[in-house]
Design a protein around this nucleic acid. Structure first.
Lengths: 205, 205
DNA sequence: ACCTGAACACCGTTCAAGT
DNA sequence: ACCTGAACACCGTTCAAGT
């Protein structure tokens, strides 16, 4: 229905993302985005069917920014290259954690993510994984990356949550309290790469 | 601030969950929950500070339902027992996928999840993992389970997304299109357990 | 003192009234 | 034909008016 005029979808999404970065996800509204763009609220509907479509544009903008350049062979063995790719995805999503809930309400079919997946599959292919192994590995890597970013930014068991866990009754939660103590020195980065290493170990056989 | 009267937090949460299950997350409103309970809208504020607190109660209700009973030793080796526990978490979250976005906006400190984590750590302990290995493993399992459920229910690369991937230009996405073909016969269950097996393999060394 | 309905300040979206 | 502001039907929450 939109008969665009002077604004590109990317400009719309960038304006919405600016609103989100400034005022958080609750601050996102059609009116706020219109003000950000200096147009009337209703003018937004020239470009977008409804609010959901605007949200989808934001998701595309954020996820589409992931770097899918194939890591050079000089980056090391395939494990190192997959790690580099997964790190890029983590950084991409982690750059705008407030957008995370939107990725869940919009079945994104981001070309950027597709290209990233293509690159990952290529490395896994070189690593000698079979066809089905590659799919399972790719999806597991993506599931882990997304879940880990979520936990890191809003989860119960990581980061700030650790302190709360340490205060659980030790009689009922002996392992949890002990784990919380051990986690004091565990940075989010080491935690993320530790879990990723488990996945990569599993792929190596 | 609430000076509860006749309703328990669980009853509030159950009413809100009923609304969500019937009308979806967008259908959740203070007014709708009040109607569900047969009380005035403002009476809700006797039990709850604001809408966010009500949402948190829903998250607690859903996640708290996870079965944390230690799997009997007869359930098999530790891998099988961890798998059983992770499956339970997957089933718990998967039972109300519409609630998933709420788990992201509310740092849940669910006792149920804590108990589940305690049980998982116990099995990992018996499996011979060291203290830090156990934390990393637990968090990786949780990240994977959450991310996988999300992908399964709303993600881009799984389920219905596969068809769209198969239609990508094969020249630019040779691996993706091939993977989509191979994924035709890959059920969500096998996919989930395939990825989980990768993690477990990594823990086994 | 307690409860609650009207009211307020928002929201997404419709639509008629302007050009 | 195009654009847009008022209006509508919601929303969460405040608060004064009722008991």
């Amino acid at each position: 229905m939109p008969r665009p005029r002077s604004l590109t979808p990317d400009q719309l999404a960038a304006a919405a993302l600016a609103v989100i970065d400034r005022a958080g996800l609750p601050g996102l509204s059609m009116r706020a985005v219109a003000v950000e763009l200096g147009i009337s609220t209703m003018a937004l509907y020239r470009y977008v069917e409804d609010r959901g479509e605007l949200e989808a544009l934001v998701v595309e903008l954020v996820l589409g920014a992931v770097d899918s350049t194939p890591p050079p062979l000089t980056a090391g063995p395939w494990r190192a290259r997959v790690t580099l790719l997964v790190d890029r995805m983590r950084d991409t999503v982690g750059a705008h954690p407030a957008v995370l809930p939107l990725t869940m309400s919009h079945r994104h079919r981001s070309l950027g993510v597709m290209r990233w997946g293509e690159t990952v599959l290529g490395v896994l292919h070189e690593a000698g994984l079979g066809p089905e192994e590659r799919i399972i590995a790719l999806r597991a890597l993506l599931a882990y990356a997304i879940g880990a970013v979520q936990q890191e930014h809003l989860g119960a068991l990581s980061g700030a949550g650790t302190a709360a866990i340490a205060e659980l009754p030790a009689e009922e939660f002996p392992h949890m309290t002990e784990a919380a103590l051990g986690a004091r020195s565990l940075t989010p980065d080491r935690e993320f790469h530790g879990g990723l290493a488990l996945l990569l170990d599993g792929m190596g056989r």
